[in-house]
Nucleic acid binder design. Structure first.
Lengths: 210, 210
DNA sequence: ATACATAATGGACGCACGTCCATTAGTGAC
DNA sequence: GTCACTAATGGACGTGCGTCCATTATGTAT
């Protein structure tokens, strides 16, 4: 058996590296000039590869786009996962850590916010893309819901189900709204303000904990 | 002086009617197949006019796009304005009327949500479009802020400025988030739940009024 | 009636797009 | 060193785009 398939940087034949290069170039261009203007010629120029590579590795430009958003979402999830590993079990801290991570520069920056919006904008007509865009699914939602369930039980809250649902759904909606506002108003956007507002929302539902 | 310039439907020469027809066709197509696939050929076919009309009336396809989003936003604002005229002066009722209007079928439906997202997605690279997309400007924000100012004064709240800012900003962010969620999950989206969640957020900040 | 102004037409044009494939270059096996 | 295999190249191809303009149709003023 030959040595591992991982691409050493010196090799001129490195399909995985080239695939990743094409995906990164695509994401960069989308964040800079938008999806409609992101052409095959610009992508290959940015990635520094030849014209046939997209067809060779992805089959078509559309499939490259799908691979790009998939990779983008996987990176996003990976960052969240890493945050959740490091944080303690206290549900209040877990929720706030999630929010802080979502609002931090690693996840909420101009590039990523633009990419999110660009994909959202074209996702509806295309089910292949829509699959990757849900807010309601995914780790973040589950972790948050679990934390709120714990708190609702501690409080012996009546109608705890609705409380948990409202808290989870509302927090995610607030985070979504913050992303939109970040893009509309990047320079005056305040991560501190955003975090405080979300905290105030949760504090209204769980006054004893936040 | 001849009769009014308003287009009677029988006339074959009706520039204003044709302009509006092109704009409506453009918005329809954007909501159905997205901006990248909305071509000149499809627009004129949908509008039932000839190929040269876009160049004649708007100068180019790009300018038609800008005119379309402008018209879309004006319609949106007009609906809000009409709601605000009918509602009483009580600040609590004004805020809730605004929220209810924003979540109502007239403003939040599949077509409009898709159009919003499509334009948001391409707006960042294009300042001409970005101008029309802000959440933080506009009537809705001002009306909401005024209402919260009134309430904060009644409560003699300390740090009322921050309270008002957080309430305004947070409510708008929640509404934005609801729009995103509506699109991601149209069939299971509940306007009632959305309204209740936003109300709970505001109630946390103004417990004596909501 | 006639002339004038302009709304509207639709085909032609050049260009840039995404796709594809015959060819070349690089890599590991024998 | 040779062979076999596959990654990578880059130009050619056809398609469909947006733009434009010479022409026609329509309504208005004289």
């Amino acid at each position: 058996m030959a040595q591992a398939k991982t691409d050493d940087t010196s090799s001129k034949r490195a399909p995985e590296r080239h695939k990743r290069g094409l995906i990164d170039a695509t994401l960069d261009l989308i964040s800079e000039i938008g999806i409609p203007d992101t052409t095959v010629s610009l992508i290959i120029e940015r990635a520094g590869v030849s014209r046939g590579m997209i067809h060779l590795h992805f089959g078509s430009k559309d499939k490259l786009l799908i691979a790009a958003i998939r990779a983008f979402c996987e990176d996003y999830d990976a960052v969240l996962e890493r945050v959740l590993e490091d944080v303690e079990q206290n549900p209040v801290e877990r929720v706030m850590a999630l929010i802080r991570a979502d609002l931090g520069e690693a996840l909420l920056n101009e590039r990523s916010a633009r990419i999110w919006h660009a994909f959202r904008g074209v996702a509806n007509p295309s089910p292949d893309l829509k699959r990757y865009c849900g807010t309601r699914d995914g780790r973040a939602r589950d972790v948050m819901k679990d934390a709120f369930v714990t708190l609702a039980r501690q409080d012996h809250a009546q109608d705890g189900d609705m409380l948990v649902r409202d808290a989870t759904f509302g927090t995610l909606a607030l985070l979504e709204g913050m992303y939109v506002d970040y893009l509309s108003n990047t320079q005056s956007f305040s991560r501190r303000d955003a975090e405080r507002i979300i905290r105030r929302f949760i504090a209204g539902l769980f006054p004893d904990h936040f």
